[in-house]
Amino acid sequence: MVYKIRDKETGKVYEVTIDEETNEITVYDVKTGKPVKTVNMTIEELKEAGYEVEPV
């Protein structure tokens, strides 16, 4: 599923895909559409880390 996340401190917005089964999150560069990095976190962990998470 695709989400937009926003860093509450910097205001930067990222587009991510989240595999609900493995909790693998792939972060994409919004301008190029290319993957930047992959992390292993849940949506709740993202929120605790200071991100706003919205489904696209």
Rank of each mutant, 00 (worst) to 15 (best):
V39H: 05
N23R: 09
V39F: 15
V2K: 15
E48D: 13
K37L: 14
K4V: 14
K4R: 15
V13T: 09
E52A: 06
D7E: 08
K47M: 13
V16I: 14
D29P: 01
T32D: 07
N23K: 10
V13C: 11
M1V: 13
D7I: 02
E54R: 05
Y51C: 07
V16A: 15
D7V: 02
E15Q: 14
T17D: 03
Y28R: 09
E24V: 14
P55A: 13
V16W: 04
T42D: 04
P35S: 05
K47H: 07
R6E: 05
T38I: 11
V56F: 11
D19Y: 05
E24R: 12
E24P: 02
V30R: 08
E9H: 13
I18F: 15
K37E: 06
E15W: 15
K47E: 09
V2R: 15
T42N: 07
V36S: 05
T32F: 02
E45K: 07
Y28Q: 03
T32C: 07
T22D: 03
I25P: 00
I18Q: 03
N23H: 10
E52F: 07
T38W: 13
I25R: 00
A49E: 08
Y51N: 03
A49L: 14
M1R: 14
V53P: 05
T32V: 02
M1I: 14
Y14N: 01
E21V: 12
V39L: 15
T38F: 10
E45T: 06
R6P: 00
E9D: 08
E20I: 13
Y51D: 01
V53E: 03
T10R: 02
R6G: 01
K31C: 15
E24L: 14
V13L: 08
E15D: 13
V16K: 00
E54Q: 09
Y28N: 04
E54C: 14
E54I: 12
M41E: 01
E21F: 11
M1G: 11
E52S: 07
T38Q: 07
K12H: 11
E44N: 11
V39E: 04
M41I: 09
E15A: 11
K37V: 13
V53D: 02
D7C: 12
D29K: 00
T38E: 04
N40C: 13
K31A: 14
V13I: 12
D19P: 00
V53Y: 04
E48S: 12
E52T: 07
E24H: 10
T32M: 04
V2E: 06
V56S: 09
Y28P: 01
V36A: 05
K8S: 06
E9F: 12
V39M: 14
K34V: 09
E20W: 14
P35M: 08
V13S: 06
K47V: 12
P35Y: 13
V2L: 12
V30A: 11
E54V: 11
K37Y: 15
T10P: 00
K12Q: 13
V56C: 10
I25M: 13
K4E: 07
Y3L: 09
V39A: 06
K4D: 00
L46K: 00
I5Y: 06
E48I: 10
D29W: 04
V53F: 10
M41P: 01
P55D: 08
N40A: 11
V27P: 00
T32Q: 03
V53L: 10
T22K: 15
N40I: 14
K31F: 14
L46N: 00
Y3D: 00
I43T: 02
T26G: 01
Y51W: 15
D19N: 14
Y14M: 04
M41T: 06
V30W: 13
E15H: 15
K34E: 12
I18G: 00
V53A: 04
E20P: 14
D29I: 03
E52I: 09
E24S: 14
E48V: 08
V30C: 15
E15S: 11
E15I: 15
G11N: 06
E44V: 08
E54H: 09
V30L: 10
K37P: 04
E45G: 08
G33L: 05
T22G: 06
A49G: 07
P35L: 11
R6C: 10
D7S: 08
T38L: 07
V27N: 01
G33T: 02
Y14I: 03
T42S: 11
R6A: 05
T17H: 13
E21C: 14
T17K: 10
V36L: 14
K34Y: 10
T26P: 00
T10E: 01
K34I: 09
P35I: 14
E45P: 00
Y14D: 00
V53Q: 03
E54A: 08
V2P: 10
Y14G: 00
G33E: 03
E48G: 09
V16Q: 00
V27I: 15
V56H: 09
R6F: 09
I43E: 02
G50D: 03
R6K: 12
I18E: 02
Y51E: 01
Y14S: 02
K47N: 06
Y3Q: 04
V56W: 12
Y14V: 02
K47P: 02
N23M: 08
K12S: 09
D7L: 02
N23S: 10
T17Y: 11
K31Y: 14
P35D: 03
I5D: 00
V30E: 15
V13G: 02
V39Q: 04
T38R: 11
D29M: 02
E45C: 05
K31Q: 15
Y3W: 10
E15M: 15
E52N: 04
E24W: 14
T26S: 05
K31S: 14
I18V: 13
V53G: 02
G11M: 03
E54Y: 14
Y14C: 15
E15G: 08
M41A: 07
G33I: 01
P35R: 08
G11R: 02
V30S: 14
T38G: 05
P35C: 08
K31T: 14
T17L: 09
P55Q: 11
M41H: 04
I43G: 01
K8A: 05
E52K: 03
I25K: 01
L46D: 00
V27G: 03
T17Q: 09
K31E: 15
T10Q: 01
T38S: 08
Y3H: 05
T22I: 07
V13Y: 10
E15F: 15
E52W: 06
K34R: 09
R6D: 01
V2H: 15
V16S: 01
L46G: 00
E21N: 12
K34T: 09
T17I: 11
K4S: 07
V13D: 04
R6I: 12
V56N: 08
N23D: 07
V16F: 08
T38H: 09
R6T: 14
M1W: 10
G50R: 05
I43P: 02
V16R: 00
D19E: 05
V27Q: 04
E9N: 13
E52R: 02
E48N: 12
K34F: 11
T32W: 03
E21P: 03
D19V: 06
G11Q: 04
L46W: 04
V2M: 12
G11E: 02
P35V: 14
P35F: 13
T26A: 03
E45D: 11
E44I: 07
K4W: 13
I25E: 00
K12F: 11
T10V: 01
N23A: 07
G11W: 03
G50S: 03
V53K: 02
M41W: 07
K12L: 12
R6S: 06
T10M: 02
T32R: 01
E54T: 09
G11F: 02
K37S: 08
Y3F: 11
E15C: 15
I5Q: 00
Y3R: 02
T26E: 02
N23Y: 06
E48H: 11
V36K: 04
Y3S: 02
K8M: 09
G50Y: 05
I43V: 07
R6L: 09
I43M: 11
I5H: 00
R6H: 07
E21W: 07
E48M: 13
E24C: 14
D19H: 09
P35A: 09
I18H: 11
P35E: 08
Y28I: 10
V16C: 15
M41G: 13
